[in-house]
Design a binder for these strands. Structure first.
Lengths: 348, 348
DNA sequence: GGTCTTTTTGGTAGCGCTACCATTTTTTTG
DNA sequence: CAAAAAAATGGTAGCGCTACCAAAAAGACC
């Protein structure tokens, strides 16, 4: 009321933004700070009367808990880093989507990291994100730097490795048997009567899961007494355009080819679209099979035969596995084979 | 050495994992903890000699900074929440990709949140993520609950609103003028001589940016003295299948239609694929225009005419704007029109 | 009513780090 | 070479919250 500026603040805040703290709420509700903490985190341990008073105070002051402080005090934040090789590849995005939706519903937040298929970057990222004291981690693949493996093992919290399945994982593993999936399509092509069958891929240097599928493909063909190492690939990233290019390359190099097994549906779709352009008949002139089960496949003419993998569900499954562990229970099995499905359509 | 279990630990860790702390590093290097902190965060303020000794200690002990503790002490973490309506829509993912790549390179981590187009969920998410004391926030759209606006304004750190452009934003704004983009395609169709032109969309109830494009479309047509309110839409999510369905619906309801302006390329692609199936000629029987500039467009037969929006770049631009502010500078303009480009191909 | 158990509330002491300021050491300068 | 300025290092005190234990209050029981 008096003149002169009031220099002294009711509470001096050492630094940072002067947000409402749990102490403010406690004062307003006439209880101890710890009681507010309990009312917020374990409401069943606080009497209804106090709970209501505290809720009112929270509302009135617009209190938002400082998760960082809580995380420091309780040695853990409700954050789950999800580390994928790339965000430009639809597959990983769909997986992340499944993870994100499941975790967010359970009150966890996804911290996104991408490695660009570089294991050193992965190692650095893991180091970095562990600094956030996350509740668990979801990573891609079973192949990591030794330092990454050591650090995560020493860390001791739940880790899910995603995408492929293997004998030894860090902790938990959700994925698909890539070699079997590759063999599945190869066998289908054999069954259809094709004998001159090629595998076509891009970026297979970095994408060892595609190599695993090729390996399954090759073995299936050779088991049937058919030449299995007909392989066309280059190192550009997967795209419709890349699919068109390898398609033409293969056609030129091997005009008597009967069937093409593409490393993924993007490439296969590019090939079908190119065939459309050129007036080639699929599968009469050349049969085309893919992998993934992208929505586009069923809208093409001819519709694309593919080995579909439930990508979104893979993410959901990984998140669920993690949540089970975070609730202190242990999952029926730390290894979930998400499976695949051969969808036979018109292109073979 | 004696018998009997040693009950006393070298250092009792009150709780949590017994990770290496800054104190351990300090002891090992023979300096004060604060000096380690400086060597790590502001190396130029520490003499070369000590810096080296500290780096060695860090290496030897495998020290990883606890970002949570650092965040609490300095009232801020290098985390940027990115809040999008959906992760099942490619557009948002590409934007997130651009953001993620740019921020990660600058040492920030993306915290992912999705609202499912629900402003109340957005409000709750904002409350929640602010609890992580992030350095800034990136959100989608200019439309928010009052409480969200109030909270972010009071918060006072950089906020970028993404996707559309408007007169008043919270802080910074990167996007595209949706009505102009819609008008652009409409004018192109007029120029081509089409007069019976319809706008086709899905999920326009929730996606008000599509409504803005329709509005621009309508006004452009009416400015040319052409009936502009020919609108076909339903509330299913955008997909190729949905595109095929509205395409057929519109065709049935309006057999004399000359051109279709789709709310996005997914729908437009579905329409072209359906036309392919039915042997309809595009653009002779019906012209088709899209919006977005998806890669698929140029591989279809006919190639899709579209209004392309640099989605990835939009994310990059948003992240850059944020980074400028985080470095304490202020950007030349808090409003970036990312623009769009009419790509005329074969379908019109 | 008193004892024992259970439930509810509060006090204390950090979690691991950095802001702030004080102190020491080194460099600069007249 | 002393005085002043600059650079390097350290001490202290929290950031806002919760684990842990102690105390108080409320029920349960004979």
């Amino acid at each position: 009321m008096a003149t002169g500026k009031s220099v002294i603040r009711e509470r001096r805040r050492h630094r940072g933004d002067n947000r409402v703290t749990i102490e403010d709420v406690a004062k307003q509700a006439g209880v101890a700070p710890i009681t507010v903490s309990r009312a917020l985190n374990t409401p069943e341990k606080v009497s209804a009367k106090l709970r209501e008073r505290i809720d009112h105070a929270v509302e009135a002051l617009g209190y938002v808990p400082n998760l960082i402080a809580g995380g420091l005090a309780s040695a853990g934040t409700r954050v789950i880093p999800v580390i994928v090789p790339s965000l430009s590849i639809l597959t990983f995005i769909e997986v992340v989507h499944g993870i994100q939706q499941t975790l967010e519903a359970a009150g966890y937040q996804v911290l996104l990291g991408s490695t660009d298929f570089d294991l050193d970057r992965e190692a650095a990222l893991v180091d970095s994100v562990l600094g956030y004291s996350p509740s668990g981690v979801i990573m891609t693949g079973l192949l990591h730097r030794d330092s990454t493996v050591r650090r995560l093992k020493a860390w001791g919290r739940p880790v899910v490795e995603l995408m492929e399945l293997g004998d030894s994982c860090l902790d938990m593993n959700v994925g698909v048997e890539n070699d079997e999936a590759g063999a599945c399509m190869a066998r289908h092509l054999l069954e259809r009567g094709y004998r001159r069958i090629a595998f076509l891929g891009t970026g297979m240097q970095r994408d060892y899961r595609a190599r695993q599928r090729y390996e399954g493909h090759r073995q299936a063909l050779e088991a049937a007494g058919v030449k299995g190492d007909l392989l066309f690939h280059n190192e550009e990233p997967s795209s419709y355009a890349a699919g068109r290019r390898v398609f033409l390359e293969a056609l030129e190099a091997c005009p008597d080819l009967e069937a093409m097994h593409f490393a993924n549906d993007n490439l296969a779709a590019g090939a079908i679209l190119e065939a459309n352009r050129r007036g080639m008949r699929v599968p009469e002139d050349i049969a085309i099979g893919g992998y993934l089960g992208l929505p586009l496949g069923e809208h093409l003419t001819p519709q694309l035969t593919t080995v579909a993998v439930p990508r979104f569900e893979m993410g959901v499954e990984a998140a669920k596995l993690l949540l089970v562990r975070l609730e202190g229970r242990s999952p029926p099995s730390p290894r979930v084979d998400i499976g695949y499905e051969l969808i036979v359509r018109e292109s073979t």
